[in-house]
Design a binder for these strands. Structure first.
Lengths: 206, 206
DNA sequence: GTCTATAAAATGATAGAC
DNA sequence: GTCTATCATTTTATAGAC
């Protein structure tokens, strides 16, 4: 009852919490918050339901812990854009990081996609604060680059959104791509990196 | 019990079924299939839950009826590409139709987005048959145009996916865009049409 | 820390009166 | 066709033994 989630002590606690987080990611990213059950998560984590609720007091608590843990990963690629670097190289590197995330962490991408498609009722604060401020900041950096003639003149916000759309699409809509190309490819990301990078090279050139 | 859903006779039946379909669209597109309840749909439709189940025998039946009704709308823009027309003009017109759909029917877009993000368990047949065949067909048309030097040389499948990603993003991830730009815009589609069209003009030019 | 048992609420669906 | 009442199941969460 008086569990210190902040600093788990024993090895078994760490193990269980890690198993729960991984199970929760698997289940929530596939079914959304309301579509997921504690039974599913407990089974995926290999523990009993009451034991699951020993570590986290409610379904909400698991979900919040999971989102919190992953917000950093989600923001990192945008955060790492260096205003001192070369404009086109920095943005192409950003796109590459996003594509890598989409390929290597598709469940994380779908977890957030589920939330946002459903109106982001549990992410308002994060989106309106952390994400908004970061986007505003990097939009200014991009605008400066454009003023200096380093990039094509585009709306920096729409440019960022288009990068999100193009890179996340392969993770979020993976099922659709796999079914449409069932006879042609095995991995929906096949050729995606090259394609996305080549079109953004065209888009960004001044 | 022996309701002929195919040909509703009375005016009141038509009215109720239309109200149910609209309510189901509203609820399913916001919460996903499992996240939606019959109570929500009945309330949104302004009828009682047993009466809702008089018109449709189960929650699944409502969902299937809704998806079936909307599949045509969803395929129409791609279907309307004319192989005899001008390559760039046809694709730009396709993009325009997709952008209009995204702006005017965001709930429909999110309904499908919810399904696909969650692995499309109730749309496999449609995606693997109708959509796949249409995409294969139009990919060939695009490939011919490229061979004739009318378009830049690109993977036609990735080109189609990129159009889906860019156009649907404004409907599906509307919540995120609105929250990130809360202080700057009221409609998340503001400027989207112009931006998307301008970058695809760059992308498509041979 | 983990389990069995169980409570309490939500939810899909049916029965039967009108 | 529509309603009230109700059932059966699922699902979240708790109690208490070990």
């Amino acid at each position: 009852m008086t569990l210190e989630k902040a600093k788990p002590r024993t090895r078994i606690q760490k193990q269980n919490i890690a198993a729960i987080m991984d199970a929760a990611l698997e289940v929530f990213s596939t079914n959304g918050f309301r579509g997921s059950t504690l039974d599913q998560i407990a089974q995926a984590a290999g523990i009993s339901k009451p034991n699951l609720l020993y570590y986290f007091n409610s379904k909400q608590a698991i979900h919040i812990a999971l989102l919190s843990e992953l917000l950093g990963i989600w923001l990192a690629p945008l955060r790492e854009i260096n205003p001192e670097g070369d404009a086109q190289a920095e943005l192409m590197a950003y796109i590459r990081r996003k594509l890598e995330l989409s390929r290597n962490f598709p469940r994380e991408s779908r977890l957030f996609a589920n939330e946002i498609v459903q109106g982001a009722p549990r992410m308002e604060v994060f989106l309106q604060n952390d994400l908004k401020h970061l986007v505003d900041e990097q939009a200014k950096v991009i605008l400066n680059w454009m003023d200096d003639g380093k990039l094509a003149l585009l709306d920096p916000y729409h440019l960022i959104f288009s990068i999100w759309a193009m890179t996340q699409h392969y993770a979020d809509f993976d099922a659709q791509i796999r079914m449409v190309r069932a006879d042609q490819i095995t991995d929906s990301h096949d050729g995606a990196e090259e394609f996305v990078q080549s079109i953004f090279q065209k888009i960004l050139a001044p």
